[in-house]
């Protein structure tokens, strides 16, 4: 079975899993883990959206 998700779906999946692991491994308390995981997730998405707009303006 194969799947072919869109680029953005792939980014969301990647950001979700990576953020969970970063949260668990980089912080000690459950509350700090959730906050850091959410922070990483937002940063992943923000970086991708910023890079996408940057590429758009380079192209146009």
């Amino acid at each position: 079975m194969t799947i072919a998700p869109s680029h953005f779906t792939t980014v969301i999946l990647f950001a979700t899993f990576a953020s969970i692991i970063f949260g668990i491994t980089q912080r000690s308390t459950p509350k700090a883990m959730v906050r850091y995981g959410a922070y990483c997730f937002v940063l992943f998405l923000a970086a991708v959206i910023a890079a996408s707009w940057l590429m758009y303006f380079i192209r146009h």
Binding site: T2, T10, F17
Partner: peptide, 14 residues
Amino acid sequence: ASISCMFVLGMMMG
């Protein structure tokens, strides 16, 4: 769950 899903999804993407 996270690592297994990531690995399996990667394999499913080819």
